[in-house]
Computed example of a mutant assay.
Amino acid sequence: MAIKKQLHIFKMVSYKKIYFRADASAQIGYGHFIRTLAIADMLKSEFDCTFFTVSPTEYQVGEMTKVCNYAALNTDTALSEFLDLLKGDEIVVLDNYFYTDDYFRSILQKGCKLVIVGPMSNRHYDVDMLVYGIPQDDIKFTKAERTKLYYGFDYAFIRREFFKCENHKTRNNGIVVCLGGADPLRLTNKILQRLVNIEYPETINVIAGDKVFIDESLNPFIRQYKNLAASQIVELFDAYRLAILSASTITTEALSRGIPVIAGYYADNQVDFYNTLVDHDYICGLDDIRKNNLDELTTELLDTISRKETYKFDVTSIQQRYIDAFKSLANEF
């Protein structure tokens, strides 16, 4: 099969196989891909990991190459193509919202163990494991009795680079802005325009993917960083006093570094996480960024939040918790 020719080979070991399946694009963003690859990175020392994705970009290929084996799937046949690769002895990890219950059953009927990353609200899951790496006061999905559930910051979706020792240097005045790797709604530009309009006096650092639109007129006022590696994002979060982010994986990673966060949401699947963060005073909330005119973003507010004592969660045992959870699942074969 053509798929075998695309497999990027690492040294193979006799560990239990885990197949990770997540995509990224300008339409769906990079969140599913990044968080699932982060889980693979935490498990690769104990398992034989392979990552499957549709039509990966150069950036995705570079990130996967650092972690484990990978293979590209055809856009039109990805669902069936992936099923055909399964032998029944794999742990399968899926991360997206388009998979149906019938697709879940097809994987389970092959004898595989099935893990779902980021389960959706108002859906029932009869799978082997759910991973929900964000805190949630009110779980809005249901599960079968047999289904294991691991959730909260104890199982946060953060990349290995964020496990490094806490920064103890004095932070610089300035902001880090990131509204996702794709940002088809151009919300990054909306935030930046507001910061320029209020004449924010400090450095404005922007993390963006290749497809993120930023008006050229804003370039004199910002520092723009394209397709940063995780280690470079850690450096920015450690260097500055405030971040304006989307309520997604990037906010989890920012909180792990202790930088104060102002965040909002722009997708339905971000709302529950956003509400939990606001209710616990982990962030300063902007609500729905699509509808918000951002009048509350003033220099006074930005200065106040940047000086606020911020919530920071412990990352030291996250990797081991993931390893233990997947080893427990592997023992059920």
Rank of each mutant, 00 (worst) to 15 (best):
I134Q: 03
Y125Q: 06
D128V: 07
F141E: 12
M120D: 12
G152C: 06
N122V: 09
E161G: 15
N122L: 12
L108Y: 07
K148F: 09
K110G: 06
E145G: 12
V115H: 03
I134V: 11
V127S: 08
G133W: 00
T142M: 02
F153I: 05
C112F: 01
S121Y: 11
S106V: 00
V115Q: 03
E161S: 14
D126W: 00
Y97K: 10
D128Y: 01
I134D: 02
R146T: 08
I107W: 00
E161R: 15
G152H: 02
F104S: 00
D128M: 06
L108W: 08
K113Q: 09
G152A: 09
Y103I: 02
S121K: 14
T142V: 03
R159D: 08
K143M: 08
L114K: 08
V115R: 00
T100W: 05
D128K: 00
Y155P: 15
D128R: 03
D101V: 14
M129V: 06
V131C: 13
F98W: 09
Y150V: 11
A144K: 02
D154S: 12
Y103G: 05
S106C: 02
M129T: 03
N122T: 14
F162E: 10
I134W: 01
C112D: 01
L114Q: 06
E161F: 15
F98D: 14
I116G: 05
M129R: 07
R160M: 13
F162S: 12
E161Y: 13
Q136I: 15
P119M: 02
D95H: 01
H124I: 15
K148Q: 11
S106N: 08
Y125S: 01
K148C: 11
V115E: 02
T142I: 01
I139S: 06
Y151S: 12
R105E: 10
D154T: 13
P135F: 02
V131G: 10
L114W: 02
Y97E: 05
Y155I: 04
I116E: 11
L130V: 12
Q136M: 07
Y125P: 09
K110F: 05
T100C: 07
L130G: 04
D101G: 13
R123W: 13
L130N: 03
V127G: 00
V117W: 01
Y155M: 08
R123D: 14
Y151M: 15
I116W: 04
P119Q: 11
M129Y: 05
M129D: 11
L114M: 02
G118Y: 07
R105N: 03
T100V: 04
V131I: 15
I116F: 05
G133R: 04
